[in-house]
Nucleic acid binder design. Structure first.
Length: 492
RNA sequence: CGGGAAGUGGCGCAGGCCGGUAGCGCAUCUGGUUUGGGACCAGGGGGUCGCAGGUUCGAAUCCUGUCUUCCCGACCA
């Protein structure tokens, strides 16, 4: 099997596909736009999910599960939300197949089994959840409701890409209900912070926290907060969103509560989500031409040990040492695998584990045993160094921390180096054409201007950064006055 | 959905124009030698050529339809 990866410089898209497939994260399937997540990729997702799930629970949320199908009449209740997703909904219209009388052994949809009402396969769950919340909420004492769901959703995209945009994807969606606007806004921002914390400190991916413009806002939201990450080709990738939904869904589904003064009020809402798309972000942000580079804190496997030996005697001596090292590493909470399979030679194993992004590789051979050392190779820099077997556990544990930090620093340095200010239209266009990355520029605040810029350059406003510096300026396109810079980029 | 490319043993490809019953490399299996950056020798197994029709004595090859994938757009997390 060819294991060569297309170099980034040659074809960035192909490089990405190669990483996902040859790194054993996922595979194409027989289903249009849908991928198979392979065990290694799913282990990565499980690690991410577990950390996030704990963070949600630590902030007071509980998990629940709502139906995959949403009756069309419920789905259309919140008009903007429905409109926003209408173009990409899969719809169930029948509930039965039957054998084809004209074609033996084949099945056809039974025309007599047409549903009274079509079912929309959820592209997001606000509708079914708010329809449910109506029954849960009568009094201010029932609030807040802090619920999260881990689920799959379907969005029938025109063009799909592994992890970045698939017709079906896995995600979590938090849906909360509150008595006051203030509380809902606080919740929205809190969850944005949780996402930023997770993506930066676990995935080692620096993000910019911000607010979306009206054009880029979630359908049905009053405000969409987001974290934006930069990929190695300079394009932006929305890594997570947290929406303040106002009372839109409460009004659409008639969810009211009695407050302390016995006034009937509409409930305030938020929703927030991250998806398997984060895996795509991870791959594109850190990896290189040799394969994946995974942050130790969420890597399915942190350390691999490769023996190098001639004959059974040497193997036995190495095995004995490795057993001790493995115990030491495991006691420190490090995940480690001893790759002593006999069907591949060391060089092949080295390449294979680099491809899969295992953060640390330990090689141990007969001549190392004599000196009581091993060769420790780190994936992020590909540096190799000898280390004493005594105290190897702590040494590796510290190295994993260092790798985690280094991957983050590297990504952050790249990102900071690729955010450039543009002060007029010529500079803006020049930067887009000649330097990849984000552009910080003044904008007059109107959707019309934003649309025109998108039309002419394919660049969109990724966000208005939170805590943005206020400064007087003029819009790069219209020349109208502006009070702050916003971030533009071409995006995934 | 528009433009381009592609689908042939597990993977990567050749063959196709000019129809005659499928080949190469890697992987795999057996035996042996090997093992400090993707080993070598010898022998073996595995494919109704994406799917469905059609033309023909005969189709991987020609025709029609269809599905899927990749790249570039429009749409989007």
């Amino acid at each position: 099997m060819s294991k060569e990866i297309t170099p980034r410089a040659q074809d960035y898209s192909q490089w990405y596909n190669d990483l996902v497939i040859k790194g054993s994260l996922a595979d194409y399937s027989a289903v249009r736009g849908c991928m198979v997540i392979k065990p290694y990729g799913f282990a990565l997702w499980e690690n991410m999910r577990d950390v996030l799930d704990k963070m949600f629970k630590d902030t007071g949320h509980q998990n629940a599960y709502f139906p995959l199908f949403i009756p069309k009449s419920l789905f259309e209740a919140e008009e903007k939300n429905a409109e926003g997703f209408a173009k990409e909904c899969a719809v169930v219209t029948h509930y039965r197949l039957k054998t084809d009388p004209n074609n033996k052994g084949k099945l056809i949809v039974d025309p007599e089994a047409k549903l009274e009402e079509e079912l929309v396969v959820r592209p997001t769950s606000e509708a079914i959840i708010w329809n449910t919340y109506k029954g849960w909420i009568q009094s201010y004492r029932d609030l807040p409701i802090l619920v999260n769901q881990w689920a799959n959703v379907v969005r029938w995209e025109m063009r799909t890409r592994l992890f970045l945009r698939t017709a079906e994807f896995l995600w979590q969606e938090g849906h909360t209900a509150h008595a006051t606007k203030e509380e809902a806004v606080i919740e929205t921002k809190k969850m944005l912070e949780v996402y930023a914390d997770f993506v930066e400190n676990w995935m080692a991916l620096p993000v910019i926290k911000g607010v979306k413009t009206a054009n880029e806002r979630f359908a049905g939201a009053e405000d969409t907060y987001c974290i934006e990450a930069m990929m190695q080709d300079g394009k932006a990738l929305q890594a997570g969103t947290s929406h303040f939904l106002g009372q839109n869904f409460a009004k659409a589904f008639d969810v009211k509560f009695s407050d302390k003064n016995n006034n009937l009020e509409y409930v305030w809402a938020t929703s927030w989500g991250v998806s398997t798309r984060l895996i795509g972000a991870l791959v594109m942000a850190h990896s290189d031409d040799q394969g994946l580079v995974l942050p130790p804190k969420i890597a399915p496997l942190q350390v691999v040990i490769v023996p190098i030996f001639k004959g059974d005697e040497q193997k036995a001596a190495i095995d004995a040492k490795v057993t001790v090292m493995m115990a030491e590493l495991k006691a420190l909470g490090v995940s480690v695998k001893y790759d002593d399979s006999d069907n591949a030679r060391p060089g092949w194993k080295f390449a294979e584990h680099e491809m899969k992004g295992v953060p640390v590789r330990i090689a141990i051979g007969a001549r190392d045993l004599e000196q009581n050392i091993v060769e420790v190779a780190r994936r992020d820099t590909k540096e190799k160094a000898n280390a004493s077997i005594d105290g190897i556990g702590l040494h590796v544990k510290h190295l994993l921390d260092e790798i985690q930090q280094n991957i983050f620093n590297r990504a952050k340095a790249f990102r900071d180096d690729h955010i450039t200010e543009a002060n007029n239209w010529e500079e803006f266009v020049e930067l887009l054409d000649n330097k990849t990355g984000f552009i910080s520029a003044h904008w007059d605040g109107t959707p019309e201007t934003e649309d025109k810029i998108k039309e002419q350059t394919k660049a969109t406003i990724r966000c208005i950064p939170l805590d943005n510096k206020q400064e007087a300026g003029t819009c790069i396109l219209s020349g109208n006055p502006s009070t702050q810079r916003v971030l533009f980029a071409r995006a995934y």
